[in-house]
Design a protein around this nucleic acid. Structure first.
Lengths: 255, 255
DNA sequence: TGCATCAACTTGTTCCTACAAGTTGAGCAG
DNA sequence: CTGCTCAACTTGTAGGAACAAGTTGATGCA
């Protein structure tokens, strides 16, 4: 009658109940032993089924507490408005967006001088191994880890704009700082990818198993040459990226 | 000495060897019993460690064959060039891009008339439950499942452009078909998200555990109103999306 | 009342066994 | 030589047991 292995039947039954909302948002699931009795399966088998749901990102488990349904409240990032000088903002884009959403931003900075990795060198059109300044930024929203951001600047730019090498926030935003001193970012090339987090990323972003990360690589260009490359790693469960392209006057109209 | 549980030590050791390239691209890993002897751990413990690497997307397993390192050969999609009338193409964007990359495209179509789901209705600015035409497309590259695409057209558009309701490819591309008959897409709003696949998606895209999907939702607008909404589901391990924004004349120059 | 302790829960880790099921290559029958 | 069978590998599924470790609330002592 059922060709599916038992642990899958367990997972399928629980998944159906979860998506139908049988378990309140942050109430707990029945314990492993209860499920074991209900499905007439060993604890190991039930655990296999639960592990499947964890890896799908549907539930989380905590030792001593049990399993609970994960809630997703996504945060939208408008990538095409970022770094657009015409769009009014107070401070940098991250602070602006988070504050506008009624959340509380927090970030920690770190600056390193290091030789350019191959992929960065290629994007910045510089020699692999030549010096770059890496501004690394770990961002939180309401004290929940949100993203890590690594921006590489080529050496020639640092010499002209030494504030980029200081390990602190640039209040007006780096784009404006550069523009105000004559280096204008006139275009950018974005690459978006997804994968499962490395153990290091999982630690920094405090994500468990089953949550992919969104990788956003932006290479900014002046009229002459590449001026910086930013790699942002987002928690995939909490973020969505938007692009507005072309004439969208029909979008804002009320129907 | 080592506070980490043994199955994590196994996973960490193997991960290190994999990223250092100790195992050839598609050669197999040692079998579970070999690893069990090497790490002085039970087969179950070794399996837990291997399961971790599978969920990270590093390796795959096949019954009877063993474990092997997964290769990533990503396919780049230029999202900002899609549906741009100025950019010359033969046929639709998918066929063009895949053929240009020297790969062989294949796709199967299906058309359904169905009531609009809530999220689609909101994006198309129509009543929830009102009729829409869904053009569903399952795409392959070199016979590997690549993406599924669901495009919803509002009823008013189908009445004017009945070819959209026919279950076959429109050779010149839907964008050009619409433009040639007076409905021009002048802008679009893109949303990009990632998550683990549902069992249905995992089946269609033939992805195992540990591979997230990339969700791309594009709402196209004419000068007056939304004209369609496309939801594309990509295999995250095989695809990357690009956006070119602003003046990128500095990008194409040779250094 | 306030606080510490502990029993009773939870999941986490590790081992064991047994058998099912997919793959491959050796070897034998024709 | 061809083609089939089968033994010997591989991973997959299912059960068992025992103990570690985190959490919670009840109990009882000061």
């Amino acid at each position: 009658m059922s060709k599916q292995p038992k642990y899958r039947q367990v997972a399928d039954a629980l998944r159906r109940e979860i998506v139908n909302g049988a378990f309140d948002s942050h109430r707990r699931l029945p314990s492993e032993s209860e499920l074991s009795a209900r499905f007439d399966a060993s604890r190991n088998t039930v655990r296999s089924g639960l592990a499947l749901l964890v890896s799908e990102g549907l539930i989380t488990s905590s030792q001593g507490l049990g399993y609970e349904v994960r809630s997703h409240e996504v945060f939208e990032l408008n990538a095409s408005r970022f770094e657009n000088l015409e769009f009014p903002q107070n401070g940098d884009a991250y602070n602006t967006d988070v504050t506008n959403a009624g959340r509380r931003p927090h970030q920690s900075f770190r600056v390193e001088m290091l030789p350019a990795p191959a992929d960065i060198a290629e994007r910045l059109k510089i020699e692999e191994g030549s010096t770059t300044a890496l501004r690394f930024c770990h961002r939180y929203v309401d004290d929940v880890p949100w993203s890590t951001q690594a921006t590489y600047y080529p050496a020639w730019l640092i010499e002209e704009r030494p504030r980029l090498a200081e390990p602190k926030d640039i209040e007006e935003g780096t784009t404006r700082y550069l523009a105000a001193s004559g280096i204008e970012q006139v275009g950018y090339f974005d690459e978006i990818a997804t994968r499962m987090p490395t153990p290091e990323e999982a630690r920094l972003l405090e994500v468990g198993a089953g949550v992919p990360v969104l990788l956003w690589t932006r290479t900014g260009y002046s009229a002459d040459r590449p001026i910086r490359c930013t790699i942002t790693t987002f928690r995939g469960d909490l973020n969505r990226m938007n692009y507005e392209i072309g004439d969208l006057s029909a979008r804002s109209e009320t129907t």
